[in-house]
């Protein structure tokens, strides 16, 4: 039950994009069409889960015992950067189809603050291994939901008659605002 609550809270109530403001750059960049949004969501979910697990182990067994907690930021970002590189190589070799679908998003993920954000929140909240996995999965699912919903909205907005000054990014932000307003309805769900 506790895990279910954590999952709902991470995915819907404290949605990464719409409430915590993590990972906004790709949110705006790749949400023009549904297909790219789906691809990005899967790539983020994958890298987020793997890097959260790896950094959790490094933090618990190296940084904390040796009192090197101040190296967290630099170690975590290097882990994420190398993981992204590694994942890219593996996918390219093993599954060309998957690579064709996710490949272009992978380099963008290193500088996606949703990944580093998730990893840092895990450490700050002192989650155990299972809780960390539940939180990370919930976060990435929430990230995907917001991204895909938003891409669907933007496909519709593209066909409407938007005032010149609002064309492009401004109307996208207003749309995101309304979507965030809708997501506020989820708070209070965990009680």
């Amino acid at each position: 039950m506790e895990y279910l609550l954590l999952f709902v809270s991470a995915s819907l109530v404290n949605n990464f994009i719409l409430s915590r403001f993590l990972g906004i750059c790709p949110f705006m960049g790749v949400s023009r069409t549904l297909d790219t949004a789906m691809g990005m969501s899967f790539a983020v979910a994958f890298v987020m889960t793997v890097s959260a697990a790896v950094t959790w182990v490094i933090n618990a067994f190296v940084l904390v015992p040796f009192e090197l907690v101040y190296l967290q930021t630099i170690v975590f970002i290097l882990v994420i950067a190398s993981l992204v590189q590694f994942v890219e190589m593996v996918i390219e070799k093993s599954s060309p189809e998957l690579y064709a679908a996710l490949g272009i998003f992978l380099p963008l993920i290193t500088t996606n603050c949703a990944i580093l954000g998730a990893v840092l929140i895990n450490v700050q909240q002192d989650f155990g291994f299972i809780k960390m996995l539940v939180f990370t999965l919930g976060s990435s699912v929430g990230y995907g939901i917001a991204l895909v919903l938003f891409a669907g909205l933007r496909e519709r907005v593209a066909f409407s008659n938007v005032p010149t000054s609002f064309k492009g990014a401004p109307v996208a932000f207003v749309t995101a605002g309304i979507l965030a307003l809708a997501f506020m309805g989820f708070s209070g769900l965990v009680k």
Partner: peptide, 18 residues
Amino acid sequence: LPPGAFLALGFLMAGYNR
């Protein structure tokens, strides 16, 4: 609140464009 952040930025960006 979070939605206000998106709304305010959207309108400010439109103003900047204008």
